[in-house]
Amino acid sequence: MASPDLLSLVAVHTDRLVATTRGLDDVAAPSLCEGWTRGHVASHVARNADGLVRLVRSAVDGTRDTMYGSREERNADIEAGAARSASELADDLERSAEALAPELARLHPEHADHPLERTPGDIRGRAADIPLMRVRELTWHHVDLDAGFGFADLEPELLALFLEDEVARLRDLDDAPDVTLRSSEGDEWTVGVGTAEVSGDRAALLGWLARGLTDGVTADPLPRLPAGR
């Protein structure tokens, strides 16, 4: 399967997330992120765009900016914006995304290996990961709004890419379960020795790996995923 055009997908899923957010009838309702309302989720995605702007400028301009000043600062910024109206949250998502779009276009192959510093001293990933990071934030947190959008609504090529990425992440964890994943589309992935079997369509498998969702997943018993993966 061909690699997806991530910048195009950023634009598409920004529009979809903004539309869903603008139509929310209760931003204070719980989201699928434990302890967060829908307002927290939307506020986070907007501040994520701001943070990614800083990471692009670090990679391209050598500013040495970090994504967030600290974990505490990140959390405070999310909390500060969480109680706004649906319209205000959607406007914030739009404005922050509009600032990020031209920055993403400045990333070129020569910037690919620049390390990403999330908070001072916390280096994870490289600049080549930034477009996929943004698509993941837009889509997974769209699911987290619990407002009608699900992993089954992802483009097939994006769904496949996320699954490959999540399996790779799981394989890197020391406490990963020994599991074989089988999709109804014909995929198979093995983690460890593959003792347990988990099956479902690609969307259901991603829902389990990414968010611990069990709808559409079959296993007896269902293996326990590592906490904080």
Rank of each mutant, 00 (worst) to 15 (best):
H111A: 05
D92L: 14
E117P: 11
H141Y: 03
A90V: 02
A76M: 05
R126Q: 15
L132V: 04
H114A: 15
R95I: 10
A112Y: 03
A80G: 06
P115M: 13
V135G: 06
E72D: 09
L93A: 10
E117L: 03
A99R: 15
R126F: 11
I123M: 01
S85A: 02
D146K: 08
I78R: 06
A97E: 05
A83H: 01
R134N: 02
D91E: 15
R136P: 05
A99F: 04
G125A: 10
E117Q: 07
W140I: 12
G121L: 04
D122V: 00
P131S: 10
E72R: 00
D91A: 13
A112G: 02
D92I: 03
A112M: 01
L100G: 10
E73V: 02
D144E: 11
A101L: 11
P131A: 12
P120I: 00
F149V: 02
I130Q: 02
L104E: 03
S70I: 00
D113S: 06
E88A: 13
E117I: 05
S96Y: 07
E110M: 10
A127H: 05
E110I: 09
N75K: 14
A83V: 00
E137A: 01
A127C: 11
R84M: 03
M133D: 15
L116A: 06
D146Q: 10
A128D: 13
E79K: 13
A128F: 02
R106V: 14
D77L: 15
D122Y: 03
D122M: 01
R124W: 05
V135A: 04
D113R: 11
G125S: 10
R74A: 04
P115D: 13
R136K: 15
R84N: 06
A86D: 09
A83C: 04
H141V: 02
R126H: 15
W140T: 11
L89M: 07
L145I: 08
R95E: 14
I78C: 11
A128K: 12
A82M: 06
G125I: 08
H111K: 05
R136G: 10
F149C: 00
A112S: 08
L107D: 10
A127D: 04
G121Q: 09
A86T: 12
E72M: 03
H114C: 11
E110G: 09
S96A: 15
V143W: 03
A83F: 00
V135K: 06
L93I: 09
M133E: 15
L107T: 12
N75V: 08
P109C: 10
E117D: 07
D77E: 15
R134E: 01
E137Y: 03
G69I: 04
A82E: 12
H141C: 05
E103D: 05
G81H: 09
H141N: 03
R118F: 12
A76T: 12
R71K: 06
E103C: 00
R71G: 12
H108S: 15
E110S: 14
E103V: 01
E103K: 04
L107S: 05
A97H: 14
E137C: 06
N75M: 12
L100A: 08
G148W: 07
N75F: 09
A101M: 06
